Simulated assay, not measured.
Amino acid sequence: MTKVSMRVNGRPVSAEVEGRTLLVQFLREGLGLTGTHVGCDTAQCGACVVHVDGRATKACNVFAMDCDGAEVATIEGMAAPDGTLSPIQQAFQDHHGLQCGFCTPGMVMSAAALLDENPRPTEAEVREYLEGNICRCTGYHNIVKAILAASGQPVAVAAE
Score class of each variant (00 low, 15 high):
Val24Ser: 07
Leu148Gln: 06
Cys60Val: 05
Met109Asp: 08
His95Gly: 05
Thr104Trp: 07
Cys45Glu: 03
Asn118Trp: 00
His37Lys: 15
Ile143Thr: 14
Ile134Asp: 00
Pro119Met: 09
Glu117Asp: 15
Met78Trp: 06
Asn9Met: 01
Pro12Arg: 11
Val126Met: 01
Ala113Thr: 09
Cys103Thr: 08
Ser5Gly: 15
Tyr129Asn: 05
Ala149Val: 01
Ala64Arg: 12
Leu27Tyr: 11
Ala70Arg: 01
Ala146Asn: 10
Glu16Ala: 12
Leu148Arg: 14
Gly101Tyr: 12
Ala59Cys: 07
Ser110Pro: 11
Glu123Leu: 00
Glu131Asn: 14
Ile134Glu: 06
Lys58Tyr: 13
Pro119Asn: 11
Gln25Cys: 05
Leu33Cys: 04
Asp82Val: 03
Gly132Phe: 09
Gly32Tyr: 12
Met109Phe: 07
Pro87Ser: 02
Cys100Ala: 14
Arg11Ser: 11
Asp53Ile: 02
Cys45Trp: 12
Val13Ser: 00
Ala150Phe: 08
Gln90Asn: 11
Ile75Ala: 12
Ser14Glu: 15
Gly106Asn: 11
Lys58Arg: 15
Leu115Gly: 06
Thr104Phe: 12
Arg127Trp: 04
Glu131Cys: 14
Ala91Ile: 01
Val157Arg: 09
Leu98Thr: 14
Glu117Lys: 15
Met1Glu: 09
Cys40Gly: 04
Asn133Thr: 12
Glu18Thr: 12
Leu130Cys: 04
Val126Pro: 06
Leu22Gln: 14
Gly132Gln: 07
Ile134Gly: 12
Pro81Arg: 04
Met107Arg: 02
Arg55Leu: 03
Ala15Arg: 11
Cys100Met: 07
Val50Leu: 08
Val50Asn: 12
Thr138Ile: 10
Cys60Lys: 05
Gly152Ile: 00
Gly54Asp: 04
Val157Thr: 13
Leu22Val: 01
Glu18Ile: 09
Leu130Val: 05
Ala159Leu: 02
Val52Tyr: 09
Val4Ala: 04
Glu29Ile: 00
